[in-house]
Design a protein around this nucleic acid. Sequence first.
DNA 1: CATAACATTCAAGTTAAGTTGAAGGTCAAC
DNA 2: GTTGACCTTCAACTTAACTTGAATGTTATG
Lengths: 157, 157
Amino acid sequence: MTIGQLAKRTGLTSSRIRFYEEMGLLGEVERKPNGYRTYSEETVVLLELITVAQNVGFSLEEIRTLLPSGLNHWNHDALTSVLLKKVSDIEVLEAELAKSKGRLLDIIAGIQEKPSHLDCADNTRRILGQILKSGVGDNPPALTGFWQHVATDSQQD
Amino acid sequence: MTIGQLAKRTGLTSSRIRFYEEMGLLGEVERKPNGYRTYSEETVVLLELITVAQNVGFSLEEIRTLLPSGLNHWNHDALTSVLLKKVSDIEVLEAELAKSKGRLLDIIAGIQEKPSHLDCADNTRRILGQILKSGVGDNPPALTGFWQHVATDSQQD
DNA sequence: CATAACATTCAAGTTAAGTTGAAGGTCAAC
DNA sequence: GTTGACCTTCAACTTAACTTGAATGTTATG
């Protein structure tokens, strides 16, 4: 496979593939007698792996240290630990967002069932009070402050 | 809270926090009469969120479009869809690595129980044959090629 | 009241991850 | 045998995400 064909297969540009080679991500690349680079199928998979790893936040340098290189292939301990770290990062974000979503839904629900004798601002303040009270204790304290302006602004939505 | 105190709380540098403000990630930042920036607790949470999001591969631009800004708070649809995409990216990587690990363990196991009348190279070829045969059909074809050099090199480990 | 440790803006420098372009060699087709 | 689509190297440019530095103002401490 030439570099152009590999580029089409992977959706990457030729220059990008040459760049990865230069960065040591592809090891020794074979050449045809005319000097053209030539690739086997495995490079397709390798490039796809690199792309996916990049998408989830690994730098090329990180990827390089985890890739099979010469006789020292995958370092499974390093690899699993770094992957676990990344997964836990994702989980933190997911948890944070799930919490946010729940709060926002609570706020919205509170607004829907507002007693009609209260005006909008008063009602918002009432709901805000409920949320701040119920939130104390089971949430990181900082988050309480964070959500105040969401609660006070929500009436405009 | 001054910018220096916020920096200590979050582990970020002051310059980085000013940079995030300039990029529109922090919205309007309040100032003391002397011109000093002043922050509330919510900014701590916001900066932690930004940092986590960055760690799992979001660009500042992506983060900015997902953050509460003025009256348009979290865009839940955009947010969940982009998060699901990122999670699916992680899952692709996990699956790929799980497969890799399984294959490598198979190869190692095969080497351990090698019939003693075969020499090392012959044995490796034998195992390689097994793997390539068993692998066809239930794996992406490209992966088959990818693992060849791992199999042939494994004897040196 | 001076001096250190903060804060401000603004411009320029840095690193990672590429892209673009010039100058040229190779190859398949007409 | 030349035209066009490939390939080569090498150097310079770009963008994102910051950092560093210069020049300057402010505030707490001995």
